[in-house]
Write a protein that binds this DNA or RNA. Sequence first.
DNA 1: CAATATACTTTGAAATTCAAAGTACTTTAA
DNA 2: TTAAAGTACTTTGAATTTCAAAGTATATTG
Lengths: 98, 98
Amino acid sequence: MGIIDNINKLFDHRIRLGIMSILVVNENADFTSLKELLNVTDGNLASHTKTLEKANYITVEKSFIDRKPNTKYSVTKSGRIAFEKHIEALESLIKKKK
Amino acid sequence: MGIIDNINKLFDHRIRLGIMSILVVNENADFTSLKELLNVTDGNLASHTKTLEKANYITVEKSFIDRKPNTKYSVTKSGRIAFEKHIEALESLIKKKK
DNA sequence: CAATATACTTTGAAATTCAAAGTACTTTAA
DNA sequence: TTAAAGTACTTTGAATTTCAAAGTATATTG
């Protein structure tokens, strides 16, 4: 087993890591908030949220707020668990340097 | 500026992160050692080391040891600095959850 | 009602990732 | 001695991923 085997490939990208970091502390965040916080383009954000959604790490809820479409993302239980594991893997990899 | 802007794209991949993690504590490591520690295929490792080399984050030294080719990788000064910055960016992103 | 804005989605070109196959020896063993 | 297997990479290109431009749909503003 390699020393990076516990690093989750799905979180091994700064945008997805950022999305998860936001969602684990916020219960939910909408498309526009994520876009601004992460400073990414629409299409790019959409494709990364879709990847996380397919993995069942986040859920999407669409509604209309003030007659405008609104997409809210939340982290799932399994997403939260997977993320914690990833962070632990990252920490143990990096700590080796001390 | 987004919250992930200080994450270095080049270290935003588990194999390259693993290579750097090994090299910042070891002064040097050869191809075979990296391959075993990381549990990756030859071609895959070669392409990631090349990426880091192009960025001037690691250097390569080729020689023969026991009549066999040996490739040693070491981290450069700028590679070390970039890596530290990356780790700080990761930590500050993750710490927000506490 | 035309122009501009908001909130996404779709599309596909470009870049990246990855492993299979290739190269160049060396070692073992018949 | 020579054939087969092993070591240490490198090359290649197919598959996947990333990303932004353009598109869709509705709302607002002048």
